[in-house]
Amino acid sequence: MKAFITVIGKDKVGIIAQVSGLLAAEKINIEDISQTILAGQFTMIMAVSFSEGAKSFDEIARLLKEKGESMDLEISIRHMAIFEAMHRI
């Protein structure tokens, strides 16, 4: 299953390390990563896929949310299908 993770907030040391560390531990592969500053906010987008044996989507969403709260960032994960539905015919 493929999904997009978005990280939005104030730039600081170790965002990629922290998020990618969590994903590696949870058997989630990062397929693409990009980051930019939009309207003064750090914005990172990761395309990820769930490997065999990874926890459920709900569980990963919860872990990412907790990670976001601990780093004062807004981290969310959404199934790729919603983006494809909206932006591709």
């Binding site: 997009f4 930019t36 914005t43 395309a47 983006f83 494809e84 932006h87």
Partner: peptide
């Protein structure tokens, strides 16, 4: 591939 603009538009 979905681009960043599209992803951020959806989230907004």
């Amino acid at each position: 591939m979905i681009n960043n603009y599209e992803i951020l538009e959806t989230i907004k």
